[in-house]
């Protein structure tokens, strides 16, 4: 067992956890933040993407113990005072989601894209989102949403 302290969505949490606990399980089962989804559990689909110290990572392929002391942002931490984050608002406006399963990961990954590249082309958006799979295949609208969010932020 290990004592791990993380700052999750701005709040400090300290928990004693098993050494092999995955970050995705820590977020969902210990903190009850179930917006982070687990799709494939094999590092392929990107439904579990969160930010660790500002960078997008697959939380199903990361030990919680490995990132002791880090800051984590999940989909729940994006909005401010009940206002949707510009990326969330753009996904809503463009119907960038159908069933919504892939959406938290898509949004967390797209926010990281704009942190790296303020004005990505369609091709750059598609390339960046290679690690996010949408089973409803709503890619066209997802790309449109990311483009609009880039213009609005």
């Amino acid at each position: 067992m290990k004592s791990v302290t993380l700052e999750v969505n701005g709040k400090k949490v300290t928990k004693t956890i098993e050494d092999h606990l995955l970050l995705s399980s820590f977020i969902r089962e210990q903190l009850n933040l179930t917006g982070t989804h687990v799709g494939c559990d094999t590092s392929q689909c990107g439904a579990c993407v969160v930010h660790v110290d500002g960078k997008s990572v697959k939380s199903c392929t990361l030990l919680a113990a490995d990132i002791d002391g880090s800051a984590v942002t999940t989909i729940e931490g994006l909005s401010t005072n009940g206002e949707l984050h510009p990326m969330q608002a753009a996904f809503k406006k463009h119907h960038g989601l159908q069933c919504g399963f892939c959406t938290p990961g898509m949004i967390m990954s797209s926010v990281d894209l704009l942190n790296n590249n303020k004005n990505p082309s369609d091709a750059e958006i598609r390339e960046w989102l290679e690690g996010n799979i949408c089973r409803c295949t709503g890619y066209q609208n997802i790309v449109a949403a990311v483009k609009e969010a880039a213009q609005n932020s």
Binding site: S43, G46, V49, K55, S56, V57, K58, T61, L62, S109, D112, L113, W128, E130, G131, N132
Partner: peptide, 9 residues
């Protein structure tokens, strides 16, 4: 290599 999240780790 892989995708953005794989490259971040």
């Amino acid at each position: 290599i892989g995708d953005a999240q794989v490259r971040n780790r």
